[in-house]
Design a protein around this nucleic acid. Sequence first.
DNA 1: CCAAAAGCGGAAAACGTTTACATAAGAACC
DNA 2: GGTTCTTATGTAAACGTTTTCCGCTTTTGG
Lengths: 355, 355
Amino acid sequence: MARTACSGALVQQPDPLRAMVSIRDVSIAAGVSIATVSRAIGNPDRVSKATREKVLRVVDALGYSPNLVARSLRSQQSKLIIVLVTNIANPVLSGCIRGIEKVAQGLGYSVLLGDTQNDDTIEARYLNLLSARQADGVIQLSYRQHGKVDELILSSNPDAAVVNACACLDAAPCPSVGVDDVGAARAMTEHLLGLGHKRIAVMTGPDESPHSRDRMFGYRLQLRAAGIAFDDALVIRGEFTMKSGSEAAAKILELKDRPTALFCFNDEMAIGAIQKLTGLGLRVPQDISVAGFDDIPFSAYANPALTTIYQPAEEMGAVAMKLLDQRLCGETEIKTVTLPTELRVRQTTAPPGTA
Amino acid sequence: MARTACSGALVQQPDPLRAMVSIRDVSIAAGVSIATVSRAIGNPDRVSKATREKVLRVVDALGYSPNLVARSLRSQQSKLIIVLVTNIANPVLSGCIRGIEKVAQGLGYSVLLGDTQNDDTIEARYLNLLSARQADGVIQLSYRQHGKVDELILSSNPDAAVVNACACLDAAPCPSVGVDDVGAARAMTEHLLGLGHKRIAVMTGPDESPHSRDRMFGYRLQLRAAGIAFDDALVIRGEFTMKSGSEAAAKILELKDRPTALFCFNDEMAIGAIQKLTGLGLRVPQDISVAGFDDIPFSAYANPALTTIYQPAEEMGAVAMKLLDQRLCGETEIKTVTLPTELRVRQTTAPPGTA
DNA sequence: CCAAAAGCGGAAAACGTTTACATAAGAACC
DNA sequence: GGTTCTTATGTAAACGTTTTCCGCTTTTGG
């Protein structure tokens, strides 16, 4: 198991001079009781103006700041919330986090960010903080494997405060916020069809990913609406990474009747694919159109600039945090919020045969 | 100040059925004292085998997990460390974080990630967790404005456990880890000079950034070593973002004697610059070479692939965490670790006049 | 001017652990 | 067979808050 810190030796904290100044020190210095100090800080209107000012002056002079651990223990809430992420570097997720932080701040929470790297052990370690009361709630931002953690938490503790963001909407047994993957994929497919493409390949993510599944569903739905038969050969499997996008794109050239467009289920894969296709001598979009999903910041600066679907990542995080706060305040209704996406047409898509 | 959670109403946590099972419940169920339960869990060799097993069985049966808040309060350490980041989305920083997490896990710490967004208020809020004993230490990953926070913490509490990573090496009043920005910049400049470039423009970051300053220093040093005079007109100011890189690059064309190479002090700016230069009709690298710094994952997939300096981000984080742990265990020596960088020549640099 | 209410502040009981100290029972020693 | 050393456990005191009772003033209303 976890190695003991500092080379296995059990070292006692020296903690020299400067002991922490406690509420007791303040109370003595101010000549009032501990309770009064506590009230002066936390319930200002429960003490007289004179006392309050006297206490606050001493607080300032002594540089006192309340021990939050003790406060947590007593008041049974830590004002800490955990955000579980599979990958911090994912731009959609980091946008989401930013939204969470903003709202959290206003509500007086601090956020504990856990990068799980899709590792169950790490995940469990963070969840343990929840049941150990070191955190009040969890926002689950798992991009793939959604639902696993939620279930894990909820099965062991049905009262746990969990909110799911960036996840598919149906499976969540808890409040959640997300986008309409199906609709967005339809919009993109419609865009490509509208340009005149008939053979549109798709690059999916892992099969377990609900995003992958929903976007695929939207693609097929729109294809059908246009009266075009779905062709299984046009489905390429990726991993939501640039590397996998690059590798998978090579398969495009092996297809007998080469598709004129490629719809990648995220931007990273699209970028990888474009690199490979360009390297193989195809021009984008003249020889083949490529579209992405997410609109990560880089996509606008790619060469050529990527046509994609924008997701309101930051807002998603903000809503998630609000839902969690409501949950923490006793709200029991399980709300589901869906935010709108936006098709952003840039330079990687064009009518077929523009050469 | 911070709005009270849940629309200002002070709602009491309902916390219905299923009260948390405490150590007392376990002790009763196991027929031993609280102390024994505590020991069975924390100091297994202080109790007899029989009792230990009996206790652990009950722990399992009751699903008990120790309240970490109480433990923190008593033992004066939270096993939580805070990582302060100016921007989660920065690939170098997120790599660093990954390294931190890996080491932290092995040492039994959880990491609390704070995205400060360069906002002093947010920064202060996280630092408050430190002085409020809700966290044991801080790793400061500030990419720009380095040193500010360190000083802030240390001035109010000289004993605070702070480690600085990704920062310049000289200014830190605390243990730190980083790379040799000067040497790396020299290496890149040498590479460009070696290709035959005489007029090499640089795109810097903000003046306050120590990285910016050090890389500039390395550039000038190597220039002088090659007997080339430094030309102030070739210095373009950026903001370490793609947007600023794109905007600043336009100035290149306004220079009378156009430089044949552009050394950007990070990859994002290089990518922005390339987009702009290409858009303006210049070919990279035939008409102008462009180099970056950092080697973010995208750089290898850019079109053309970016020549840059690789930084061992993950290792940097790992070392930082180790330093912090040592500090937490009483080590007082202020160590400074410098990790090696690596020049990665790809497609955006070539001899001048290759056209 | 008196009863009731309101305002203010103190004492002390939690919150759930860890751990120093005490106790008791064997084991080991001469 | 007493003394001393271990070993195993229990008792109770922290850790630093918040908050529930109270009691003491002061105001208010009649």
